[in-house]
Design a protein around this nucleic acid. Structure first.
Length: 280
DNA sequence: CTACCATCCTGGTTGC
DNA sequence: TGCAACCAGGATGGTA
């Protein structure tokens, strides 16, 4: 599942194939993903030159020479494929295909169609509904213990759910929330407002570290993630607790038979994984 | 305001 | 072995 580190990896992998290279052709192969494609999208993209490509939360953002900005969200199963071979026909679930002046095709493929594509005037980007209410970037200067403490104070919602709320911090998904709470030693069921100062002060670096490590590893995936360079990137990132129910927690030397190892619970319909010994 | 749940979708996995 | 049911999850919109 693409979360922040995966989107960052895709963004970095796409730079050299897109920046300052004119889009010469656009194929839109269905009317909508999670939301409808923008009106006249192919016409509006064709002939434009991508000037800047960056990431905000889990969104890929491409500023174009046309003074419009293309916004992509990969949803759950979205991938970007760089296809240098123009003779290969479009595959199942290839929904948007950009051809560049360099002869490459940039393909948005998304089997589950939870992804989103939008196009908006660059000048109006900040007020776009996707971004208006987003919290701080977890790897940016705006994310620190006092700010997080402020956002969590008084909240009764479980800390697991609070961290999934993109208004609290932008870019975390189900996997990295479980991982970060593990490294911070915090039980995912704790009411967000019950976290004390030292706990928040360990949670902030735990979130940063877990994301930075995943980015350094080139993103991670459960099974169906393809790196932006077009290579089949089936690297299995090792998680500490995610999807490890019943297994021994790393760095915990307790008896598996006694503790049952890593626990899986459901919170607001999402699975959470944690070590009941280390996380309190 | 907060909390919770359904919804969208396909493919991999589980269960009979 | 075959097939049906289930599950995964990000963002959003509805309800209590």
């Amino acid at each position: 599942m693409p979360e922040l580190p995966e989107v960052e990896t895709v963004c970095r992998g796409l730079q050299r194939s897109l920046i300052d290279i004119k889009i010469t052709d656009v194929q839109q192969r269905r009317a909508n993903l999670r939301i409808p494609f923008p009106d006249h999208l192919p016409d509006r993209l064709t002939g434009a030159v991508p000037l800047r490509l960056y990431r905000r939360a889990k969104y890929l953002i491409m500023d174009l020479s046309s003074a419009e900005t293309l916004i992509l969200h990969l949803g759950m199963s979205g991938r970007i494929i760089i296809q240098p071979d123009k003779t290969i026909p479009a595959q199942k679930h290839d929904h948007l295909i950009l051809t560049t002046a360099a002869g490459k095709r940039i393909i948005f493929n998304d089997p589950r169609r939870f992804g989103m594509v939008d196009l908006t005037p660059t000048a109006a980007l900040e007020s776009h509904r996707f971004f208006r209410a987003l919290g701080p970037e977890p790897l940016g200067n705006g994310f620190h213990a006092p700010a997080l403490g402020e956002k969590l104070s008084g909240k009764k919602v479980a800390i697991k759910n609070a961290l999934l709320d993109q208004r609290v911090v932008a870019g975390l998904g189900n996997i990295y929330v479980s991982e970060a709470l593990f490294y911070a030693g915090i039980d995912p069921r704790r009411p967000a407002g019950s976290l004390r100062k030292p706990e928040i002060e360990s949670l902030v670096p735990a979130i940063r570290t877990v994301l930075e490590k995943a980015i350094a590893a080139g993103g991670s995936s459960l099974r169906d993630y393809v790196q932006a360079n077009g290579d089949l990137g089936y690297f299995q990132h090792q998680f500490a607790v995610y999807n490890k129910a019943g297994q021994k927690c790393p760095g915990c030397h307790c008896d598996l038979a006694k503790t049952g190892g890593i626990e899986k619970i459901t919170q607001s319909g999402r699975s959470s994984f944690f070590c009941p010994v280390k996380q309190t």
